[in-house]
Simulated scan of single mutants.
Amino acid sequence: YLDIDAIIDICRQHDIDGIHPGYGFLSENPKLAQACADNGITFVGPSVEALHKLGDKTIAREIATAAGVPVLSGSQRAIVNADEGLALAKSLGFPVILKAAHGGGGRGMRVVRDAADFVAQYEQAKRESLSAFGSPDIFVEKFIQRARHIEVQLLGDQHGNLVHLFERDCSVQRRHQKVVEIAPAPNLDPKVRDALCDSAIKIGKQVALARSSFWSMPTRTSFSSSRSTRASKSSTPSPRKSLVSTL
């Protein structure tokens, strides 16, 4: 299930014309999407271009900014070294959070609460990112304490149609990984809900997003700092609220 060539060979042998990648493993790997495109197989997921663009959180920040969506203050690219990162962290004000540019699932993330701890946390995040994702790239963002983690799921097609399936609250986490999801998000101001959903649509249109994806927005207001282009493994709550099946 991790061998792209073997998967494509199976499709050829059995005249399979479409692959739904599920979640995890190869679901966010643009190489599988490209292999499908090269062999005339429909990849039931985002385009190769969208996977490339949103697979790098620093590029995702640029896309959000270009779409007019507010983002957390932070680095515009991966930081070159600990000294550059520390200088930026001081300008942002502690606490800050270090994030793996190509990461996910809570890996390669470190909250830094004072300057004395920055270098050690940076080196740890860099090593973990390299080990888990094959990339040492780390960027810095302002850390919002006691923020809520709200996700908006998007559903698009190859004809330019794009809709949101409302939001879900994923604030209950352990080690930056979601434990519980609730839809609709409880006690969320309707104006904030509308702003989040509108922002997600803007971002999706910016990358011509097709098929299922979601954008997560840790929020006290309408901040955006992470994304995922896969069909969510936990895609039940939002579609159930909107009575739409994503599969």
Rank of each mutant, 00 (worst) to 15 (best):
K57Q: 06
A185D: 14
Y23Q: 06
I63T: 03
K90I: 13
N161H: 08
Q124C: 13
P218I: 15
I63M: 06
I150Y: 11
W215A: 05
I63F: 07
S234N: 10
N187E: 10
D137F: 00
R127N: 03
R77A: 09
L155P: 04
Y122V: 05
P186G: 09
I97E: 15
D17W: 05
E141N: 13
S222R: 03
S235K: 00
G134M: 06
K205N: 13
L51W: 14
A89K: 06
P186E: 12
G68R: 13
S225N: 15
H14I: 00
D189Y: 05
A132M: 08
I150K: 06
P70T: 12
S212G: 11
R240E: 13
M109C: 07
K31S: 05
D3F: 00
A37W: 08
I150C: 09
I144M: 12
A120V: 13
I8D: 15
T219E: 11
R227A: 00
P95Q: 14
V140D: 01
I138N: 00
S213G: 07
V180G: 07
V152P: 11
G156Y: 03
I182D: 14
V180I: 15
C36F: 10
L162F: 00
V172S: 08
T221H: 09
Q13E: 01
G156W: 04
F133Q: 05
R168H: 04
H159E: 01
I203F: 01
D114L: 15
V111A: 14
V207A: 12
E167C: 07
V96P: 03
C36G: 09
I59Y: 02
A210E: 07
P30Q: 07
T246D: 08
R220W: 08
L243Y: 08
I8A: 10
I138M: 07
P239K: 03
Y122Q: 06
K142H: 10
G18Q: 03
C11V: 01
S91N: 15
G40H: 04
S27D: 07
I97Q: 15
R146Y: 08
A87P: 12
P239R: 04
D9Y: 00
V69R: 02
S73Y: 12
P184Q: 13
Q13D: 04
I59M: 03
F223M: 06
